[in-house]
Design a protein around this nucleic acid. Structure first.
Lengths: 244, 244
DNA sequence: TCCCGTTAAATGTTACAACAAATAACATTA
DNA sequence: TAATGTTATTTGTTGTAACATTTAACGGGA
């Protein structure tokens, strides 16, 4: 009946942290590439070769390949039939599909979050939003993008559904190579700010449906502007009047 | 103005298929493991070591590791901190979360499918359902499970959303290690048959909401029975009156 | 100039060996 | 007998080399 687990009493109050066993090289490479992608530091369509990654991060082919192929397996990078890995390119059709999927997932997360969120969480989220408004006023769009990320995921994490949050994260990463496309024209972000205030109010009233529809509006708005910009960029590339 | 693509006319009517360049070993291993998982040939919690896979399929460690880790990256297998890969175990809480996600994704696929499905598709789906009813009558439950898979995915594919279909496939694979748990008690599958007929009728009327709610009912029903069985199995394991 | 075949370079694939870490098996002691 | 320390075995990690394939560069001929 008695558990034989011998928790030596002399180690009771010491509160020792488990030794920080370092991640494997493959995981470290994966992390580095992941945050580079999230920060939009790769261009859409860019080719990521195994050897380039390996030499850039000073590891051998094995961990570089592992990281690259895992990212591809997760759908964050795209692997073509010749084995090369690319930063995905977004066509209009693909954006439409991704947006529908995001809508379904993030609306679910929002509904669950509205039921479970604490007052502290709401205060924190509201604070993030204020910071984002200020960053927008001083036109620090890189900061705006980062705070936007934090704002949304603070809400989604409140759902308590970790697997769902991970899935949403991946969808966001699929878009983030287009961050640099979006930056310049973010002056009209006022609409986005409006959406966020709707979300905060919905949180305060803890109304699942209201929050969900606010999230859906925000997603669709972002998708529409992204489509506009991609179209604008494409037509600009088609007629390069001024040679570079 | 004229495209310079030289499609040699002498190869016009020949209809030659592209040379079947064999997949890489890693992909083949991945495929084999995938179908073994789908068929429920691994037990929940089972450990899949790199070397075991490598020797079983007669390849070196490299492709075996690649396949295993990709499956883990996709969320189909579970990787623990020591680097070992396991067939995931489903707790009740996890099933509840997965079910909510499945509901969101498959309802979306159903709605889109109802708008796009052709008469031929409907006829085919109805035929699959008939085969499934017959298989159920002759208690060929392995066949029932396979036809159930075909039935659902024939609908989802009609949505035209490939990415979404892939996501749903992964969710199904997460459950399929429990197929062997489900087989024995599938006599009460009659309810499931009922659900399918609701889905077929909704397809025929091309009513998105009706189809979506039928799908949701089916998913929740399956999840409930799975939870029941897991609980029953656990309590059976807790008191092993008869020694093995 | 453009097409085509040839050659060279780049890149992905795989096996293997050496190493490190985790786990299991064993022996020892209280 | 149960806890603990020790050893052996298993298993994951990573670099390297050899190989196969793809892609780029080159050059002759129509």
């Amino acid at each position: 009946m008695n558990k034989t687990k011998s928790t030596d009493a002399s180690f009771a109050g010491l509160d020792l942290a488990p030794i920080g066993r370092s991640e494997t090289l493959g995981q470290q490479v994966r992390t580095q590439l992941g945050s580079a992608i999230m920060a939009g530091r790769f261009k859409p369509g860019q080719k990521l070769t195994i050897r380039a990654v390996a030499t850039a991060l000073d590891v051998s082919l094995t961990p570089a390949r592992e990281a690259l192929y895992n990212l591809a397996a997760e759908g964050i990078l795209e692997m073509r039939s010749n084995g090369s890995v690319y930063v995905p390119t977004l066509t209009t059709e693909r954006i439409i599909e991704l947006t529908k999927i995001r809508t379904a997932l993030e609306a679910l997360a929002a509904r669950e979050a509205a039921l479970r969120i604490t007052d502290d969480d709401i205060a924190n989220i509201s604070r993030i939003n204020d910071l984002m408004v200020k960053a927008n006023e001083r036109k620090d769009y890189a900061q705006v993008m980062e705070l936007n990320w934090e704002f949304h995921f603070a809400i989604y994490r409140a759902s308590g559904m970790n697997e769902l949050v991970r899935m949403i994260e991946k969808r966001w990463m699929m878009n983030s190579s287009y961050l640099n496309v979006i930056y310049p024209r973010f002056g009209q972000m006022d609409q986005g700010i409006n959406n966020h205030q709707m979300m905060v109010r919905a949180l305060q009233s803890r109304d699942p449906e209201r929050l969900a529809s606010a999230v859906v509006i925000d997603i669709n708005f972002a998708a529409d502007t992204l489509i506009d910009m991609i179209k604008a960029q494409q037509s600009a590339e088609r007629r390069p009047k001024v040679a570079r």
